[in-house]
Write a protein that binds this DNA or RNA. Structure first.
Lengths: 322, 322
DNA sequence: CGATTGGATGGATCCGGTTTCACATCAACC
DNA sequence: GGTTGATGTGAAACCGGATCCATCCAATCG
């Protein structure tokens, strides 16, 4: 392993200059910088991250905490975050825990010593756990807002409002909303959005749930959906919707549109006229990393709330609308 | 942050002794050790990992490389690996790349400076990329064997043989095997296992594929499956099988058993008489971590090949058989 | 033209552990 | 009783960068 000293020797400068060349290039004369760079590429120098961490008091690692990997809602978020982190020269580690229980805080605390900050996707659970988490290191919340903490959310509530309006415009007179997990943060917002749109337009709405955001749960709740008599379904999460669709298909019901994100299952159902909700998970991940990076730069900056617009489309082939 | 010096001062010993107390307790007298431990718990001392890394030349981090997060085959592997790594006081980071292309090696090399070793799940791709990877740091291959490298695989080939036999015993006289991705390592083994079982028992077998291990691909290939005239289907991967099942269901075909792992979709289909393959992903992850940890201890140890038995069950409710 | 200023650079120190080596102590031994 | 050896401990030297501070030099100024 070549070290900074090797480079310094070859370039004929001091260790300090080499270090500066990489960390604060403008403080080094262009000629010197060039010599250093030549030497370092020639030797294949890569800074030792442990040494850098030790000297700087920073790890250069950020953690992305998700409640599960099984829900495909999170995979694009992870990809987006990973990509952006790499661009910012940060390392991203993905940790799976819900933070729902207080005991999770122990492993959280352990992790907090290994990273500079957290991006936490906590779709459910209470605020105080998040607050406690925020005491260790900077935290950016994902798809969740909490007073005094920086958050990046997809504005699904607005999207749900549009969805309801769309469906009503299509002639539906009875909608079914399937609620999310218990103590979900987004669920009340979405329910309210859908309900207000429906009431405003004089349409009946049945609210089911709570219901975990899983395919299985969707299967399980499908009977209730059919019994409701609704002619269109808006589930809290795509996973639920897919479960419902699958169960409906299995039961031979083909004319009950269920709103989901685009997905192979949904597509296979050939659902013309079923609106689609289009959360850009990768963007969500990217923006969250950006925010966290900013928080790391200026730790005392005030908390920000960022909302990403979520397009809704009448048909998967359409252009985004609303 | 309390440091080792603080602890040393409080315990009335030197830094060296404190360090020894934690790293090689048997070299310290019991009384001294106790004093040190008391002091460190009183101060809430946690060793600074960067400093430790720097001094030891090790990071204490291992990487788990998977080709994708979207395939639920990998999620239990990740959980298992994570759990075991934590027990061994190692940190696990999950990296998503296929290692299929040579260009991927660049990011691999970058990563190799941050970790002590790799667990690589490379279901497809060529050996030489893996070998190159092995030159940086110890590597344990997951579900893939390569000459001269340590590997942990689930013995799915044997399981596939049993599956074929089971189906034939159930009276099926025409099986369909759906092959995996191109250049899949396991595919030829599974095909051979199924084929030999079928031929041995005088049963016809149709081999389709290659086919990516995705739900979409399963949807796409389902027409061919039906055309084949087979009365039972053994797909390379569960994801493919689910796609096929879904498409069949959509087409109104209900009497064509498709072998998969247990999954909500499969269960929803109420498939009595359809054998189930039961890969224990968590175990796979755990064992891989164990192996890597051993490699880290004794770097020159010879490569090992570990095969985990994969149970096959005639019915999800059954006890494991074969 | 001497004093001041500011940019470029090197030496030394520090970050917080680990590890080597020397030393002190004490029991066992010839 | 002096030698041997095992055992426990501390001082100091690392690990590889980042950064403070002093120094040096050239450009600018009065």
């Amino acid at each position: 392993m070549t070290t900074i000293s090797d480079v310094a020797a070859l370039a004929g400068v001091s260790k300090a200059t080499v270090s500066r060349t990489f960390t604060r290039p403008h403080t080094v004369s262009p000629e010197t910088a060039q010599r250093v760079l030549n030497a370092s590429t020639k030797l294949g120098f890569v800074p030792n991250s442990a040494a850098r961490q030790l000297a700087r008091g920073r790890t250069g690692i950020i953690a992305l905490v998700v409640p599960t990997l099984s829900n495909s809602f999170f995979t694009p978020i992870i990809s987006g975050a990973q990509a952006r982190a790499q661009e910012l020269d940060l390392q991203l580690t993905v940790a799976v825990h819900s933070l729902a229980a207080a005991e999770e805080l122990a492993s959280f605390e352990r992790l907090s010593r290994q990273v500079d900050g957290f991006i936490v996707a906590a779709p459910w659970g209470t605020d105080d756990v998040l607050r406690t988490a925020g005491m260790y290191k900077p935290v950016v919340l994902l798809d969740r807002e909490t007073e005094g903490m920086t958050s990046v959310i997809a504005d699904t509530a607005s999207a749900f409002r549009s969805l309801a309006s769309h469906l009503i415009a299509q002639g539906h007179r009875h909608l079914c909303y399937i609620g999310g997990p218990e103590r979900s943060w987004q669920d009340p917002l979405r329910l309210a959005a859908v309900t207000s749109a429906a009431e405003h337009l004089g349409t009946k709405i049945t609210a089911l749930g709570p219901c975990p955001a899983t395919f299985e749960a969707g299967l399980a709740i499908s009977a209730q959906v059919r019994e409701s008599g609704a002619t269109a379904v808006i589930p809290y999460a795509t996973a639920i919707g897919l479960g419902v669709q699958f169960a409906l298909l299995h039961a031979g019901v083909r004319e009950l549109p269920v709103v989901t994100s685009e997905s192979p299952v949904a597509e296979a159902l050939g659902r013309a006229h079923t609106p689609v909700i289009d959360v850009d998970g990768e963007e969500l991940g990217r923006v969250a990393v950006n925010q966290l990076a900013e928080s790391l730069e200026s730790p005392q900056a005030t908390a920000r709330r960022i909302r990403l617009r979520v397009p809704v489309r009448l048909d998967p082939a359409d252009q985004p609308s609303v």
